[in-house]
Design a protein around this nucleic acid. Structure first.
Lengths: 142, 142
DNA sequence: CAGAATCCTGCGAGATACTG
DNA sequence: CAGTATCTCGCAGGATTCTG
């Protein structure tokens, strides 16, 4: 199933890749980078905050809700999401300027998967943390 | 809803945290680190490979299936998962030794969420990649 | 075969200061 | 207010070598 079409050198139309499905287990497939981006802490939080609102959220509000994020990391995260076509950025040309962020349709489609992952993490955090603690103790002892 | 119990200075029982649910939006909650670990590229691939088998998988086989992973990163990933109680490590004391890895029950419970995320990434990879390319072009031009 | 140990490098990410 | 720009440091992570 994996490498039977992509590596062909046939001319065809340009941008054939746009129709192809990704394959996480193909080392040359960008799906890997994409997964690393969307699975990250700040991306998850940003998408989930924005998914909670039906409208848009301003920069400062976003920053407040994602407690602990630095201004730099928030900007980077939002830029990355915008570049990937997952969120929109709308600037109100006032002074001071107001910038509003909202999810695109595709961005909203990511909220489901991330919610599932977040819930898993929240549900299992305590047990995992506990297990790790015991692990460290027995490692230090033995 | 978020910070109404955790920041209390009340004594209470020790290890109360072990019963509490995690909260991704609490800056002091380990859920954030956990999310970053399990959402990563190699963790996802390892769990999904192991989830595909009913039995166990050996180190070399795992490495082969996760094409592109370095020996160091694979070892690290497996150790981390073992420490978190998500997989088991079984050593056959032969020469040469054979090491078999398998998911714990909790590890298997992670396979679902990660599959959902993986499928999202594979489905949307092409469109996201394409969007990013156009983004870069217009950024270079403008 | 399945690691442990070591060296080396890039970039992840915080802190700070400046702009429109 | 919502960013850019710079400097800095730590460590993630690759390549290589050694062992039982």
């Amino acid at each position: 199933m994996t490498g039977q079409e992509g590596t062909s050198t046939q001319p065809g139309h340009p941008r054939v890749t746009a129709h192809r499905r990704g394959d996480l287990f193909d080392p040359d497939c960008p799906t890997r980078q994409l997964l690393d981006r969307v699975g990250s802490k700040w991306t998850t939080m940003a998408v989930l905050v924005l998914a909670g609102e039906e409208g848009e959220v301003r920069f400062a509000e976003l920053r407040r809700r994602m407690a602990g994020v630095s201004q730099k990391m928030l900007t980077q995260t939002l830029r990355s999401l915008e570049r990937d076509g997952l969120l929109t950025r709308r600037v109100e040309p006032t002074t001071p300027p107001r910038v509003h962020y909202g999810l695109t349709r595709r961005g909203r489609s990511l909220a489901g998967p991330l919610t599932v992952l977040k819930e898993w993490a929240e549900t299992n955090m305590a047990a995992v943390d506990d297990h790790g603690r015991r692990w460290d103790e027995s490692a230090a002892a033995g």
